[in-house]
Design a protein around this nucleic acid. Structure first.
Length: 250
DNA sequence: TTTATTGGGGAAACTGGCGC
DNA sequence: GCGCCAGTTTCCCCAATAAA
């Protein structure tokens, strides 16, 4: 899928990419051969110059390279190539203010869910973060990632895909729970709630020490993370509908 | 309620095609 | 080869957005 994408090239828009597909150019390899025929001299020279960079980035599994170049709504094109490196992440905090702290972090990677809890194993998350190549969140660009950068003092971050913006491009507007509902996903009682309830659960757990409140908070948090994976797969399927079939010789 | 980031819209810059 | 026009791409700024 990624090697059929041209809108990640500088100078080629999504519309230009569709034109190339219509003209029978269905892979980077074909573009390299056909560029002079299907593009203007200046554009073809630019594309031919960029092609080795793209091949090198794919071989080096540089997700950041592609995420930074693909336009919104098309970043999940990297999903098949980087699915093994993809980490779905969601956090809970004590609120929204600058004084708020992270209470729970859940990460789903390669089908394995890991949860980190303040006062228990929160700092084990640092090692997981350092091993991440691609992280997928919902509104993480504005919330989860800035929070984590502040909490742990991280100076760099993995390639990041914010599913809020990807979903919006495919007509899926609103919050994660609203989108879940529209897609027909159903939560159990223990998994349902909202951010404010998550704050209350943590406060009650801290006050009483009763583990049942923490269990509910973790259930809510991990459910959010599983939803992220379902949402990513749904958006990816939607984007595939507009994709040309692979060229027989590509 | 606070926060930071992003997309969208408009303007500017660039490119290609066409006629002379 | 030059100039004009139309289409495409890039850049910048601000409103919208969703998180706990």
């Amino acid at each position: 899928m990624l090697t059929r994408s041209f809108c990640c090239f500088r100078g080629l828009s999504v519309e230009a990419e569709a034109m190339l597909w219509r003209r029978g150019c269905l892979s980077w390899r074909h573009l390299g051969i056909e560029a002079r025929r299907v593009l203007s001299p200046a554009k073809s020279a630019s594309v031919i110059e960029q092609l080795p960079l793209f091949k090198t980035a794919l071989e080096a599994r540089s997700a950041d390279f592609f995420v930074g170049r693909l336009p919104a709504g098309h970043r999940l094109r990297i999903f098949p190539a980087f699915v093994q490196d993809a980490a779905f992440l969601d956090i809970e905090t004590t609120g929204l203010s600058r004084q708020a702290v992270v209470t729970v972090i859940s990460v789903l990677q390669n089908g394995k869910m890991q949860t980190f809890v303040r006062g228990r194993n929160l700092h084990d998350f640092i090692q997981v973060w350092q091993g991440m190549r691609v992280v997928l969140t919902f509104n993480g660009a504005c919330f989860d990632l800035p929070f984590l950068m502040r909490e742990f003092g991280f100076s760099c971050k993995p390639a990041h895909i914010d599913l809020k913006h990807e979903a919006k491009c495919w007509g899926l507007r609103g919050g994660l729970k609203e989108i879940e509902s529209r897609l027909g996903y159903r939560r159990t009682d223990i998994e349902s709630g909202d951010g404010e309830k998550a704050v209350e659960l943590w406060e009650t757990y801290e006050m009483t020490g009763d583990a049942i409140h923490l269990q509910k908070l973790i259930a809510y948090n991990t459910c959010d993370v599983r939803s992220l994976e379902l949402l990513a797969r749904r958006i990816w399927k939607l984007s595939c509908q507009n994709y040309p079939a692979p060229h027989p010789a590509s």
